Simulated assay, not measured.
Amino acid sequence: MQPTPLRSGEDVFKIEELRLKKVIELGANIINRRISRFSGWKKSSIFWNFPYWSTKLIRHNMMHIKKNFFENMFNTVLDVDGKTKDNPKSREDLKELCRRPELHVIDGKYSKAIYTLKEESKKLLCDG
C-alpha cells in the first residue's frame, strides 16, 4: 500500500473552494457532512486563518509549540514547583551566558526572578 502523498500548503488551501463551515457556525454539521461525502474534509479548522499556516510542512506542530510555550511561561511566572524554568540548573547556565552575577547560583541559593508573581498577585490572577 502506497503512503498518502504529502500535500503542500497550497494543495491544502484549495479546500477553501469547498466552502466548509466552521464548527461554530449555524448549520455547519449538515453542510459539512454533505461536502465531506465527496471531498473527505469534515470541517474548516481555525488554524487555517493563520497567515503562516500554508507554509508549514507539519502544520499540527504549531499547536503544540504554542501550547508548550504558554505552559512554560505560565509555570515560570507563577513559580509552579517542579514546572518552572527558573531553577538552579538554568541559573548555572547563566554563568556562561550572562554577565549578571545577581542571577547566578551562590551556595545553592538564588534570588527569585523579578517576573515571578508574589502570593497576593497569584491569588488575584487566579480568583479574577
Results as ranks from 00 to 15, higher is better:
Ile24His: 15
Arg100Pro: 00
Lys67Ile: 00
His104Met: 06
Asn87Tyr: 00
Lys66Asp: 11
Asp107Ser: 05
Lys66Thr: 05
Trp41Asn: 06
Asn61Thr: 04
Lys66Pro: 02
Ile24Asn: 14
Lys56Ser: 11
Asp127Lys: 14
Leu124Ala: 15
Leu97Gln: 08
Asp86Asn: 07
Gly27Lys: 11
Leu18Lys: 05
Asn49Met: 02
Ser36Ala: 12
Cys126Val: 10
Val77Ile: 15
Lys89Val: 07
Thr55Leu: 01
Arg99His: 10
Ser54Lys: 14
Lys22Gln: 12
His60Gly: 08
Ile31Pro: 01
Arg59Cys: 01
Asp81Lys: 10
Ile31Thr: 13
Asn61Ser: 09
Trp48Asn: 05
His104Arg: 03
Ile65Glu: 01
Thr55Met: 00
Ser111Gly: 09
Asn87Lys: 02
Pro5Asn: 07
Ser111Cys: 02
Asp86Gln: 00
Ser121Gly: 06
Pro51Gln: 04
Ile15Cys: 09
Leu124Met: 14
Glu96Pro: 01
Ser111Trp: 01
Gly82Glu: 08
Glu25Met: 12
Leu57Thr: 10
Asp11Ala: 10
Trp53Gly: 00
Glu17Trp: 05
Gly128Asn: 11
Ile24Phe: 14
Thr84Phe: 03
Lys83Gly: 01
Lys109Val: 00
Tyr115Ala: 08
Gly40Met: 01
Leu18Thr: 05
Pro3Gln: 11
Thr76Ile: 03
Leu20Trp: 02
Met1His: 09
Lys21Gly: 07
Ile46Tyr: 02
Val12Leu: 15
Tyr52Pro: 03
Ser111Phe: 00
Thr116Met: 04
Val105Ser: 06
Gly82Lys: 07
Asp86Ile: 08
Gly40Cys: 07
Ala113Asn: 11
Leu26Val: 12
Leu97Trp: 06
Leu97Ala: 11
Leu125Ala: 03
Arg34Glu: 14
Cys126Gly: 11
Glu16Thr: 07
Ser54Arg: 02
Ile35Leu: 13
Thr4Ala: 13
Ser36Tyr: 03
